[in-house]
Design a protein around this nucleic acid. Structure first.
Length: 656
RNA sequence: GCGCCCGUAGCUCAGUUGGAUAGAGCGUCUGCCUUCUAAGCAGAGGGUCGGGAGUUCGAAUCUCCCCGGGCGCGCCA
């Protein structure tokens, strides 16, 4: 509702200023520092003063007197050197928010949006860094869905890459296991953990003998690409098993996908060939006949000054190789093909089959080069916008992909290829030590240590969840002896997920998270459980107040308006206002592609509620109309807080 | 060398397009459970917003320079 009013005011001011002063300008709106100054303010008169060469306060007074009625606004006052302070009509706001809170997500739009996230190499267990990616992508998808976007969630599976090849080398060459043996291992519940260790050991072996490594890798990669032989079969066994385990891990956090896009199909269905033709014909890539890139297809690239005419050597050094001189395509090339397909620009589509080993909650499909299941949704439909959740280290490559689209004349699609970039999750030195990692003197001094799949250093997602669930279960048992075991488990799980997801979402995307068990296992202060606890308190009130509620009179808008404007109204009004500001938080979150804004909102709302909770005794309030009002207010806070938490993928238990 | 990100309280971080007295959590100290759940609340203390110059009526926010940290720039992915 807050956003609605902001939009209304913005419109009214734009029109009024245009008509009266013949000036068009951006209307800046902000939240005043104190509630006495109103709910919405504009410093626009300062800008106007400059243009009109008049005193800002004088202009502000004119506007305040002549703007006329804006729906939902009680009055506009001039303050300070010339601020226009808007005071809401509290009764009307109360009524509108009640109405608004009843509605769910916005009606679905026609355009399709793709969010690609998770995309973990299927050769080892998922770790905390992967969780940040998945939680960010999942929350973004939830927020977009709430706004009526038709979101399709994709998870890219690089099942033919070097990482899987290294795992194959590990099992086949280093461990000297047969396909049969690996197949048996792959059926075990913690096969991804085994892969974690095997992969770490293997990289160590390969690093010691680079020559052998190059030979083995080339051989294995070729076998995988051609789909021939034991190595190829083993790669499929490993990748499929690990993907299913990743899906299971993510399901624990309430994260699901619509489609698994596998690199093997991009290869077998010749997606690259189609993209290659396009890129060649449009001149987006060129064949280098001389210099260091001779024999390669390259994309010209000018980073930095962009002065156009750089010298040849520099241009050559900066050009991005798309096809190697041996004719094989690079990772970026494949990514361009994939991106073209997402926008429906490739003129090709995958075949689809149900993924056999999917969590039950949502149907899951995967690309296949086998027969196409006619039941499959139309995944090939062009997306209007594509969000790629990828860590910030790959920003350059994402730029190359967008540049590829632009070179093909697809500027619109390039603009709508959104790299949802985020920084890494590292470990505090203490945490790394806790995991049994030996720090060098240099590492010990730093603020954080990078996780490394190759070194096997990192916090495995399932381990972390296990620890969180154990910790929350202990707390729940202590507090709720009476609770049946199953409910204790469920409650502990919800709190654990709330703690973890909130922990990963409370940081903005550019912050490097230095992970520490102490912080992640914290349930107090700015955490998920704090927010959940506010909901639980409300539910307690509602349970006890259920019979009283039915006997309560309705709350008239006049009563609400009076109490909200009265002497003790400020605190209550703060709760109402913030409850009605969810739309504003969501708008900001989408604008900045920053789910952290929603997390911040949820925390603030919980905080304001707790304040209100301690000030007012609700059920023992003697005035029946006031009691009814306080009850309605708690329900309103509950609805909005639950909505905000659900956008973060967090549920609130009944008791905790 | 070039490009991107970061530097705000002891620690970890917010601060959307420049706006009013720079905020929160943790930690420290002091209080509050016979009351709707204390995973909570109240209070105290804590700041040259890395440094400097500039633009502006107004700068944590924009520009430039410098300092410190991270990442990227491969016929790897």
């Amino acid at each position: 509702m807050y956003q609605t009013l902001a939009n209304r005011l913005c419109e009214a001011l734009t029109r009024h200023i245009g008509e009266r002063y013949g000036v068009t300008l951006e209307i800046a709106l902000e939240r005043p520092p104190k509630l006495e100054l109103g709910e919405l303010a504009s410093p626009v008169c300062f800008e106007l003063a400059k243009r009109l060469k008049r005193a800002p306060r004088q202009i502000a007074q004119e506007i305040a007197a002549n703007l006329g009625h804006v729906e939902g606004v009680a009055r506009i006052e001039v303050a300070g050197a010339g601020y226009l302070n808007t005071h809401f009509d509290r009764g009307a706001f109360w009524a509108s928010v009640q109405e608004e809170a009843k509605h769910g997500a916005a009606p679905e739009k026609k355009e399709k949006v793709i969010v690609e996230h998770t995309s973990i190499n299927p050769n080892k267990a998922a770790h905390i860094g992967h969780l940040r990616n998945a939680v960010l992508g999942d929350s973004m998808a939830r927020v977009l869905r709430h706004m009526g976007e038709r979101v399709q969630v994709q998870n890219y599976i690089d099942n033919t890459g070097v990482q899987v090849a290294d795992a194959v080398i590990g099992f086949l060459r280093v461990q000297k296991l047969s396909l049969d043996q690996v197949q048996k291992l792959a059926a075990q519940p913690k096969f991804d953990y085994l892969c974690w260790d095997v992969y770490a050991d293997t990289t160590e072996v390969l690093e010691k003998d680079q020559e052998k490594a190059a030979e083995w890798r080339a051989e294995t990669l070729r076998a995988i690409e051609e789909g021939q032989g034991v190595a190829a079969k083993m790669a499929a066994v490993i990748a499929n098993a690990v993907v299913s385990l990743h899906l299971k891990t993510m399901a624990r956090l309430g994260i699901y996908y619509d489609l698994l896009v596998r690199e093997s199909e991009i290869l077998h269905l010749k997606f690259w060939d189609a993209a290659f033709v396009e890129l060649k014909e449009s001149g987006a890539i060129q064949y280098a006949t001389s210099g260091k890139n001779a024999g390669c297809w390259i994309m010209p690239w000018s980073q930095g000054t962009g002065n156009g005419e750089e010298n040849g050597e520099e241009a050559e050094a900066q050009a991005k190789i798309i096809v190697r001189s041996n004719g094989t395509v690079t990772y970026v090339g494949k990514d361009i093909a994939y991106q073209l397909w997402k926008f429906g620009l490739l003129g090709k589509d995958f075949h689809y089959a149900k993924w056999p080993d999917a969590p039950a909650q949502r149907p899951l499909w995967a690309t296949t080069s086998g027969a196409n299941d006619p039941e499959a949704p139309h995944f090939g439909e062009a997306a209007a916008t594509v969000y790629n959740v990828i860590d910030s280290r790959q920003a350059y490559l994402q730029d190359v992909v967008a540049q590829g689209l632009r070179a093909l004349g697809r500027t619109r699609e390039a603009e709508r290829s959104i790299h949802l970039s985020y920084d890494i999750v590292a470990l505090t030195p203490r945490c790394a030590r806790e995991l049994g990692y030996e720090l060098s003197a240099e590492e010990a001094k730093k603020a954080y240590v990078q996780v490394s799949g190759r070194k096997g250093l990192g916090v495995k997602a399932d381990d972390l969840l296990d620890r969180l669930e154990a910790a929350t279960l202990a707390e729940v048992k202590q507090r709720h002896l009476e609770m049946p075991e199953a409910e204790q488990q469920r409650t502990a799980h919800e709190i654990a997920v709330g703690a973890l997801r909130f922990f990963l979402l409370k940081f903005t995307r550019t912050a490097i998270i230095a992970f520490d068990f102490k912080d992640a296992l914290s349930f107090e202060g700015e955490t998920g459980p704090y927010c959940q606890y506010a909901v639980v308190r409300i539910r307690g009130i509602r349970r006890k107040g259920a019979e009283a509620a039915s006997a309560n009179p309705g709350v008239s808008q006049t009563f609400a308006a009076n109490i909200l404007s009265g002497a003790e109204g400020e605190g209550l009004w703060e709760s109402v206002l913030l409850s009605g500001s969810l739309d504003h938080a969501i708008e900001a979150a989408i604008g900045a592609q920053e789910p952290a804004f929603v997390a911040k909102y949820a925390f603030q709302l919980a905080q304001v509620f707790n304040l209100f909770y301690h000030k007012h005794r609700i059920l023992s309030e003697e005035n029946p109309e006031k009691r009814a009002f306080l009850l309605r207010l708690t329900e309103l806070v509950e609805a909005q807080l639950l909505r905000a938490l659900s956008l973060l993928g967090i549920e609130a238990p009944e008791k905790m």
